[in-house]
Structure formats: structure tokens, C-alpha cells
Design a binder for these strands. Structure first.
Lengths: 225, 225
DNA sequence: CCGTTAGGTTAACGCTGTCAATCTGACATC
DNA sequence: GATGTCAGATTGACAGCGTTAACCTAACGG
């Protein structure tokens, strides 16, 4: 048992919440697995009895989610810092920043994105990032190079990058190329090109049209405009 | 307690393995969550005592994985059935089949693909699917429309579809369009177009080149060939 | 009929999340 | 300074979990 924590003064009970979060954060960093986050371990490290955690978190799930959400703010900042300038370059930078963030915090990313979300809605922090993303896409649409609903396009881009990093995180034994950074780069650009081509294709192209036909059509349209 | 199971005859001990798997499968289907798969619940439903599970599975993890791997064979068949004919159309069919499979078996998909893989290697069933995928891509590369390493290209396509379905499964409260089938279609084609464009771009295109430049370059090359 | 052994069971351990009941010490008041 | 109050915690317990060691028992070959 680590040294017992001194009781907080009146009105400052919320201090414990912060200390619990810090303890859990450290535990997660040391163990590298969310399994290490037992209420008992967290409480002991915070120098407090186990049920005290319930004074600030409804249940374990809420604690774990709170811990993982803490790093998410960083992603919001990253997005903000990468906006501006050429909208396509900005979009690319955001994608790369997102991927780097996920790979830098694999445990937190898994907990928040690779599990059945507990609440009915998207976690607010993630929602804000998504809004950034939609804005970035909207800027691209305004240049007329991309066409379509920004939200829908953003979802596609998001899911492309998410697919790559979540596979990297969950399936490290896939035959990945050695250079992760380059892989991310590929994916981001593939998603970008794909979205651009797809968004500018005639809507009435039959679903069964093969790639060559579609690309030819696209090439023709590109030269026209 | 359900009726107790009659002891198997000598040499037929392996029958219990099958019955345990079936029990677990049913439990999973009824509850819709892997949390329902407690050893006690599975054993009771199989009409057997809890530790008997250990006669056929090293630990719980192995049982859960075995349960989820059972449906995976179906995916292998789906892939096989969708090969042949125009390689690009085949690739598209495979992507759609993969997505439909994942959305039809969300729990199993999550257990196998969205969690830290236990063993050192890829589960054999998934590896076989990946091989199919690489073959399909290789066929496309032979037409000269796609260029590059089939394995690398396949990874990109896989991760695109995986990204979409895993987000759909884990984050149902995202602002998804109503028509899932159409969404999958978009993603598959975006990934296809993106890969095609990207694979045919000059390798020395600077990483900072913006989308418009790259697309123009691509359009020019496409008309030349 | 007996001995062997595959095919199980019993009982228990340590761990987990969670809750009801209880204590305690800092503060406002007299 | 003594007193009452209530926020801030603790104690003790519960049910359920995965897992293990020790034990039983029914089916078969000789």
C-alpha cells in the first residue's frame, strides 16, 4: 500500500478526481494495456480506498473512458494547427496527424474507437475533430475539385485512415511494409485521389461499370474542365 | 441447470468440443455480446461442469477465438465465389462481400479484427482470405491498369473496407448515411479509383504536390497510354 | 471380474466490479 | 472552546469471474 492520501478539504473533493485520473493514466502508460486498469490498482496508486473511485465515476467504464479521452484533446489541437493554406494540403496534413496520433496512443485509440461506444452519441471530443474534418473537406469542395456532400466525403476519408491505423494497431502481424510513415502517406493520398475521382464521376455510371471505363470517363472530364 | 449431458464413450471425448462450440455460438447469437460468453454459462448450456471446458480449450480466449473463427470460413467461400471474370469487377465484388460479411457478423468481426491479436501470427483463416485478395489484385496488375506490388495494394484496399465497416460496427452513432449498402459501394470504388490513380502516378511526385497538380498529371498520362 | 485410463466432477483460490453501512474530520455556529 | 453537520472518505461484504488441483467413475481390453 502506498502512503495514504490526506483527506481533501471541504469543497475540494473534486481534487480526487484529478488524482485518480493521473494514477490511471500512469498505470496505463506503464502496463500498456487497459487490463491493468483495475479499480483496486488505480485506487491504491492514488492512495485511496477502492470504492472512493465511485465518488467521481459512475462505474469502471466511465473511468476508463475518461482516461482515454484526456489525450484526445491533443488531437483537436493537432487538427487545428494543420488547417489553413491550400485546402488539399491541409486535408493531407490532418490525415497524417490523425494517423500519427492513433499510432502514438494505440491503447487509448482502441478503447475509444474500436469498442462498442457506451453512450448513445459520439464522444464530444471526437465530434469536434470530425467537425474540423468536415470543414477542411468543405474548403476543398469550394475549389470545385471535389464535389459532393462534405460530411459524406469526410466520413469516407476518415474511415480510410481509420482502417489503416486500426489494422496496424490490432493486427501487427499482418505483412506490413517496414516504413509506417510511408504507408500512412500512401493511404492518405489514395483516399484523396479516390474521393476526388469518385466525386467527379457521372452519378449515372452503372454500378457494374468497370474501373477502366470509369477512369477513361474521368480522364475525359478532367481535360474538359 | 439444464439436463446433464451423458458421458461420451471412450475415444469420443472430442465430441464435447463440438458441443461446447455450439453452445457458445448460440449464447453469442442470443446475447449479441461476447460478454455473454462466460465459461460458466457456456458449460451449463452444454450440460457440463465449468472446468470441463479446459479439456478442450487452453483458456477462455482460445474458446472465444474458436467460436468466432467458425463463421470466418464462410468468408473464404464468399471470396472464392466472387473471383473470376473481369478482375476489377471481381475485386469490387470481393470488397462488397467482405463488408457484408463483417456487418452480418459484427461481434465475431470485432473479436477477431478489432482486438489485440493473441497469437504471434495472423489467424490462418484470415490469412487465406488475404491471399485471395492479393491474387485478385495481382490479376488487376496484369492488365496494366494497376501498377505496383499486389500485396501492398491489397493491404490498402483491405484497410479501406475494414475502416468503413469497423467504424460502422464500433461507432453506430456517427452521422452515417441511411443506405449502408450504398456507402459500402462508395468506399469500395473510392479505394479502387484511389489505388489506380496513385499506383500510376510518377514515383518522383513530391510529397507536397497538391491534388490538382497530381490529378492533372494523371489525366495526361491516362490519355497517353 | 479386474485394472487402467479417458472423461469427466468437486471444491476451492484469488481476483474482479459494485454496493450498503459506517466512520471522520473540517468547517460554521453558538 | 464546545457542538452539530455534512462532505469526504472507509470498512466489510457480496456475487460472479477465470483458473487450478485433487478426486471420482464409467467404459473398455484382457
Amino acid at each position: 500500500m502506498t502512503t495514504r492520501r490526506v483527506r481533501a478539504r471541504r469543497g475540494e473533493g473534486a481534487l480526487l478526481r484529478e488524482e485518480i485520473l493521473r494514477a490511471a493514466e500512469d498505470l496505463l502508460a506503464e502496463a500498456g494495456t487497459e487490463d491493468a486498469l483495475t479499480l483496486r490498482a488505480v485506487a491504491e496508486r492514488a492512495g485511496v480506498s477502492t470504492p472512493s473511485v465511485y465518488l467521481h465515476f459512475a462505474d469502471k467504464e466511465e473511468l476508463v473512458e475518461a482516461v482515454c479521452l484526456r489525450v484526445w484533446d491533443e488531437l483537436g489541437r493537432l487538427f487545428g494547427a494543420n488547417l489553413g493554406g491550400d485546402p488539399f494540403l491541409a486535408l493531407g496534413r490532418c490525415g497524417r496527424a490523425y494517423a500519427r496520433f492513433a499510432l502514438d496512443h494505440p491503447v487509448q485509440y482502441r478503447v475509444l474507437m474500436l469498442r462498442p461506444s457506451p453512450g448513445p452519441g459520439v464522444p464530444p471530443a471526437a465530434a469536434e475533430c470530425f467537425r474540423h474534418m468536415v470543414d477542411a473537406v468543405a474548403a476543398c469542395v469550394e475549389t470545385r475539385v471535389l464535389e459532393g456532400d462534405p460530411e459524406e466525403l469526410a466520413l469516407g476519408l476518415w474511415s480510410a485512415v481509420h482502417g489503416c491505423v486500426s489494422l496496424l494497431i490490432a493486427q501487427p502481424s499482418f505483412p506490413w511494409p517496414r516504413d509506417r510513415e510511408a504507408l500512412i502517406d500512401h493511404i492518405v493520398r489514395i483516399a484523396g485521389f479516390g474521393t476526388a475521382v469518385y466525386s467527379r464521376l457521372p452519378r449515372d455510371l452503372p454500378p457494374s461499370a468497370d474501373l477502366v471505363t470509369a477512369l477513361d470517363d474521368f480522364g475525359a472530364r478532367l481535360n474538359l474542365s
